[in-house]
Amino acid sequence: MTKVIHVKDLKKTFITHKRKHGLLNAVKSLVKREYKTKHALRGVSFDIEEGEIVGFIGPNGAGKSTTIKALSGVLYPSSGVVNVLGYTPWKDRVKYVTHIGVVFGQKPQLHWDLPPLDTYWLNKEVYDIPRKEFEKRLNHMIKLLDVEEIVQTPTRDLSLGERMKCKIIAALLHNPKLVFLDEPSIGLDVVAKDKLRDFILDINQRLKTTFIVTTHDMGDIERLCRRIIIINNGVIVYDGPIAKIKSDYLTHKHLDVKFNKLDKKFRFKGCKIIEASDYELKLELDTKKQTIKNVVNYLITEFDVADIIVQDPPIEEIIQKIYKQKEK
């Protein structure tokens, strides 16, 4: 197995000036600025092998995107070693980025006024892809993602999800060895999400492309990744197989149940009430003791249910549990 990414003791400290609110403070800050340092990364190390799909998760401000930025060559770290495909990413930017693909879920990467197809043809020249290869790959991807019409429509007329699919094609046309996907399932409906996940798995298996995926969608992580890295407060709190996280920490589901009328007391084995009001119950279900099916059955037969939402606990909760266990 060849190593694609080697990161050792990566640190990044930002110096920003404090901005207090209010007019007086705004004027004060013109004369005297108070600076504060923010440690975005406090020594992060990991290695990633060719062909892996690694989920990169953590709450907002944890250091996820700082790490991704350092890996994609647009951030100078304060210290530490990064080696990606034999390059130090922030040196020789133009040469380095020809070997990677980057998709930012929240940012436009296609020419706004033109159909995605125009961007693809530009990429053909920019990445110097042979014409035959280019057409073969493009047709294949268009078929897999079912976007034949969409790629001929100006980007500004596309929906968020349609744009997402087109962006992913743009990032993969040059067969990069390594791809960063930042929030790839934003704006996609359930069917489209499934299609996209299959698509990524297909590319990964056929071409041994390495993927790093940051997401808030646990569904993405479960379907795509065998390994996840959880980052919090600038340090890695977990790096290992997803299966372990699932069995150790994803043991509970959250149920949010709304009732037309709640006239009975709710009691069920393996189910804990976190919050209750006249028309709503928030439940925590221990999946080791009870199945979702049984609870839902019970709810529907015994109560006048209006709505049920089943969710994984938020990532923050998992991180707390990991910390607690470490303390023990």
Partner: peptide, 13 residues
């Protein structure tokens, strides 16, 4: 708008 990062990850000067 913060889009500049997408330009920097594109292999053009």
């Amino acid at each position: 708008r913060g889009h500049i990062i997408t330009i920097f990850t594109y292999p053009m000067k």
